[in-house]
Design a binder for these strands. Structure first.
Lengths: 127, 127
DNA sequence: TTTGTTAATGCAACCCAGTTGCGTTATCTT
DNA sequence: AAGATAACGCAACTGGGTTGCATTAACAAA
């Protein structure tokens, strides 16, 4: 697959993730851009950007899909094994650039892992 | 809340989790017990058993709800911070009785965390 | 710069895990 | 045995996400 054509939807969506490690839920993107683009289009563009290694996705605490910009991923392999932090006060989710020490598990082969940490972000701790 | 009456649905569901750390998805429970009990009942009983500290829940890779028996939890506080392992071949999910070393995150207060590890279980590695 | 190909889009209908409202049934209390 | 009410079944609903298909627009070739 992969993104082939530089369409307006691709451009606008890429712009949403322009320069931060903040994650955005598909739901929110549809709320924000739903008047300009059909939700089907948004879902499909996100899918493709993930296939291309431009974005990575994970599930928030409600099981809804979140996306964030990749760091060093390719279309062939996703390397975003970093944990994600979801603030329970403001809802903000971002990528943590730390590696997780997975526990040793005998007799099993680990292929993927996802760690979601929840709590209060710096902003919400202060106020 | 909490489970107050010992009904047949409660009895049967508790029996499903009787003596193992294997997790079962709500979906599968409905498939198995749906002829005997309404799905609404199953969802509600699971909810209450979780409130009571008898079961704990987490989300599988598709964002669907899984339940497993608690170990040392109370109605007041859930202590099941252990990771869960989901086999990508056979679908089996179980609780890992190891503690996870969370990464140090400055300026944030950690309240919850969930770690889902995916791969191949022992059974599926052999065959 | 026009033309042809086909990827991308919009729309409507759909899927399905989980929820809600409400009238009925069954458990527990007195 | 009788009354209170928790638990249940049913049907309708919710909402994130998907699918099929006809239309539109991006790109390549001429």
């Amino acid at each position: 697959m992969g993104v082939i054509r530089k369409t307006k939807a691709v451009e606008v969506l890429l712009n949403e993730f322009s320069n931060s490690t903040v994650a955005i839920s598909a739901k929110k993107l549809i709320e924000q851009l739903g008047t300009s683009f059909n939700k089907t289009t948004i879902y499909r563009v996100l899918d493709k950007l993930e296939d291309d290694g431009v974005l990575h996705s994970f599930l928030g605490k409600e099981g809804h899909k979140w996306y964030a910009k990749c760091n060093g991923c390719t279309a062939v392999e996703h390397q975003d094994l970093h944990p994600h932090f979801q603030c329970l006060s403001c809802g903000r989710v971002d990528c943590l650039s730390v590696s997780v020490a997975l526990p040793k598990i005998p007799n099993r082969k680990i292929e993927f892992s996802q760690l979601l940490i929840q709590g209060k972000c710096e902003e919400c701790l202060v106020h």
